[in-house]
């Protein structure tokens, strides 16, 4: 997985509450397709008026936001369907971090699988960031220092689970890390087969 250390880039505000993963990537773009194709369909229902015709009202179609690498979002961002294509679609348009008051729980975990950083901040801080997120205005996210510096503002601290932070900084792969614990898993299962034999079919 790609490492995440610091990120400096434009942030696009998408402040509506409860933006769901059906909006981030419609299901028809997931059926029988490759993840590398999904960026073209990120936010398709909002980004296009019809096939291939951009909606000029959508923030990511506006000058100064097209190259955004950060999203600033409303509460419960990416709720709904578990589709990991939502992360792959954001990755496909170059989004590397999302800042919101809260996230859909499945999406939140999915982000770490692709080296995208979801950051939870208090609603008033997110609102302030959204107000500062002008076209072309750069934010800097420093994962080592756990601080975000908004345009014309002071650094704001944020938290990431230490385990997740370490994995992102080193670009570690979850499966690889867990496979190192194969003995612990086997020991758990040996004991569990005695406690709950019905879980393990003969």
């Amino acid at each position: 997985m790609e490492k995440f250390t610091t990120l400096t880039g434009v942030a696009a505000p998408l402040m509506e509450a409860n933006i769901n993963t059906d909006i981030i990537i419609p299901i028809k773009r997931l059926v029988g397709t490759d993840r590398s194709t999904m960026g073209a369909y990120a936010f398709e229902p909002w980004r296009y008026r019809s096939e291939g015709v951009e909606n000029p009202d959508f923030v990511l179609n506006q000058d100064g936001y097209r190259d955004a690498t950060i999203l600033i979002a409303g509460p419960n961002f990416a709720c709904g369907s578990s589709r990991e294509g939502a992360v792959w679609a954001l990755d496909g348009i170059g989004i590397k971090a999302v800042i919101a008051p809260s996230f859909g729980g499945i999406f939140f975990n999915n982000c770490f699988q692709s080296g995208i950083l979801p950051i939870v901040l208090a609603p008033d801080v997110v609102d302030d960031f959204a107000a500062r997120a002008g076209p072309g205005a750069a934010f800097t996210i420093d994962l080592e220092a756990l601080a975000i510096t908004p345009p014309n503002g002071q650094p704001v601290a944020f938290e990431v689970e230490p385990f997740r932070r370490a994995a992102l900084l080193a670009g570690l792969d979850d499966v690889g890390m867990t496979l190192k614990r194969a003995d612990e898993i086997a020991a758990f299962q040996d004991a569990d087969r005695v406690d709950r034999p019905w879980i393990y079919p003969a």
Binding site: S82, E84, I106, N109, Q113, D174, V175, R181, A182
Partner: peptide, 20 residues
């Protein structure tokens, strides 16, 4: 609970999941 495809790979390979 529902999980993404990468977590599903993790579950199939290790029979575990990383969760808070």
């Amino acid at each position: 609970m529902g999980i993404g495809s990468s977590e599903l790979v993790h579950a199939m390979v290790t029979q575990t999941l990383m969760q808070r």
